[in-house]
Design a protein around this nucleic acid. Structure first.
Lengths: 365, 365
DNA sequence: TTGAAAGCGATACCAA
DNA sequence: TTGGTATCGCTTTCAA
């Protein structure tokens, strides 16, 4: 007998015992519980009853070793080594995905690692055979996790896209370019000409697409792009504050801020106040939160609620995609087209808040 | 050969192959890699080099079956069946814990389930032998998960406490009672007499402790507790809005709100505005976020940042406790005193925002 | 419709 | 210091 056995005090019922109790073979009991057709209804019922009575659940350890499937999916969440912060958007995305996993009998392995150790973690999870599939969050412009996972030959879905990666892969994304193009147009329609863009880190793909949309809208109206009004940084509250502060202190300050996430927007709001401007009269703030189809004037609306359920839905859809991909792979189907979903962002600016403030004071035009 | 083997195209290197390549036995290779002393330095070096070269990682599936340990810890996060919302505080707590787990070689299994299925999920995770330990979030007044986990004989740490549970268990909590007592006193010092309390669900233990502290402070000053100024609900933005709206519409409205979480506080702020009151003049809002040692006047301070790093720290500490408990259990030490940590909440009201507004208008006294 | 036995890939006991 | 082998608890093949 091995050492570890001695540690188990109330030894959990296992297949062997259960089979013995029933006077059946392990094979038959296993088949009965897993719904194989070649079991008589009478035995199947007896087996189920006994399993129920003894509160039997097969050991995932043994099961995964025997089947070669771990029934586990990993999400690797990068934590910024600079700010030690996790984008809160992940929690709703994961909640949505988690629901889908439960339904399908998968466990969710959550791995929180610094940016710098991402690659190692992906490689580890796969090589240790810990997971059947992965979700990739926050891809960069040319994200090397994508070729890596291809090489490791494991199913994965990217939440977002990576413009620099040419090979095919499965993804689910929001149409960031279009969303920002429309938001910018909207502000232009209202008369704003000095529109600041507070964007995420320049290395991230979504930030690139968002700048793109913003610039496109400006150019279309013949408004010059002013590099001093564009900032790329990690999306912390302090970032919003500092950048907005600086921009507002110039002789030609912005009359509107287009902010990439709710976190820095909170900082912007504070900066507006500290600079002696009045929010809603001198300055507008419009935010777009990560992967959500939502734009709003900040401060007066049930923002969180709407944002969060949208992100949650994205998580649910990404999870469903991944589960389907794993299923196809296991059925031995080798080549099917990649699954790619583009969610269109809705603009709901002003719907329940009335029109956005229009720049009036002549000093700001 | 089993069926599943056929599915693995690029078969990962396993112990057998590695040992064969080296001309050693599996036993020796295993010992070398796991740092057992009885291996000669020469062989150990050769083994490590070969493992490195072939990118070998032991299969967690096989390893956990053989050792009886899964090296996995679960967090079960309840999702409200009513609002389908997850308390965002969990994400920071989990991020902190996740760091600690990585460091110690544990994986984190995250389980997102409706309130109603909590018990079943705990039982499942343990019976399926999926985890070596668990964190219990958001305990109720007499939480049945605690006796359940005792019965299942698995290490666990409760994030919070359960007043109705008399047996000993491991926990980490914030001194909620004292925090709310002090916050209320502070508002009383400033001259407020109509102080509203927007608390979490009455079934949750922390909400109970918070009411307690609030009431204690009022009674100590001879201010009667007005039940119309106390609300218990799930902490959504809308809840904050509706309740505040209603309270402000009475003939004797509150001059201050003490809010249990940042989410409803956002709603309160909106309600104050909609009701024609001016935030900072007619009405104060003080929030306390779950398990954080932080109170602030909302709206003008880098709230998120401070809140979040505090919660993150709690997660880190809870994880460290659990890892230690698991270690002790595995060393065969049977009875040690429970680990119990009470974190004191700091009040930082007014430190960087200046004094809180004092009620002035005579109609509100 | 049932059962016996060979894996799955590690660890750990016992012998050399 | 090394190796042979039983074992963990299942699934799956093959034979009856």
């Amino acid at each position: 007998m091995n050492f570890q056995s001695a540690l188990i005090f109330i030894s959990a019922m296992n297949l062997k015992e259960l089979a013995h109790n029933l006077g059946l073979s392990q094979t038959t009991v296993s088949r009965a519980l897993n719904g194989y057709p070649e079991v008589s209804e009478a035995t199947r019922r007896k087996v189920h009853e006994a399993a129920e009575a003894h509160n039997y659940r097969p050991s995932v350890r043994a099961k995964s070793l025997a089947t070669g499937r771990s029934m586990t999916i990993a999400h690797v969440v990068p934590v910024s080594s600079q700010h030690e912060m996790v984008n809160p958007i992940f929690s709703d995305f994961i909640a949505g995905a988690g629901e889908e996993y439960s339904r399908a009998g998968y466990d969710l392995l959550l791995s929180v690692v610094p940016d710098s150790e991402q690659d190692k973690m992906y490689r580890d999870l796969v090589t240790r055979q810990a997971v059947d599939g992965l979700i990739v969050q926050a891809p960069t412009l040319t994200d090397n996790r994508i070729p890596l996972l291809h090489e490791l030959n494991i199913p994965f879905v990217v939440h977002g896209r990576s413009s620099g990666v040419l090979s095919d892969y499965n993804w689910l994304d929001v149409n960031n370019r279009r969303a920002f193009e429309r938001a910018t147009s909207l502000l232009l329609d209202l008369g704003h000409r000095r529109i600041a863009l507070l964007n995420g880190l320049a290395t991230l793909d979504f930030a690139h697409r968002r700048s793109d949309g913003y610039k496109r809208a400006l150019l279309e109206r013949g408004v010059a792009v002013d590099p001093d009004l564009i900032a790329h940084e990690e999306m912390t509250e302090n970032y919003g504050y500092e950048v907005a502060r600086k921009m507002l202190a110039t002789s030609n300050p912005p009359t509107a801020f287009l902010v990439s996430s709710i976190i820095p927007a909170i900082g912007v709001r504070r900066a507006v106040k500290d600079a002696g401007f009045e929010f809603g009269r001198d300055v507008s703030i419009v935010i777009h939160d990560d992967d959500l189809s939502y734009f709003r004037n900040i401060g007066d609306v049930p923002l969180f609620t709407a944002v969060r359920s949208s992100v949650r839905d994205a998580g649910k859809r990404a999870a469903a995609m991944l589960i389907e991909i794993i299923r196809q792979r296991q059925e031995g189907q080798k080549d099917h087209p990649p699954m790619q979903t583009l969610m269109e962002a809705e603009l709901t600016i002003g719907q329940s808040t009335g029109p956005l403030p229009v720049p009036t004071s002549t000093t700001h035009t």
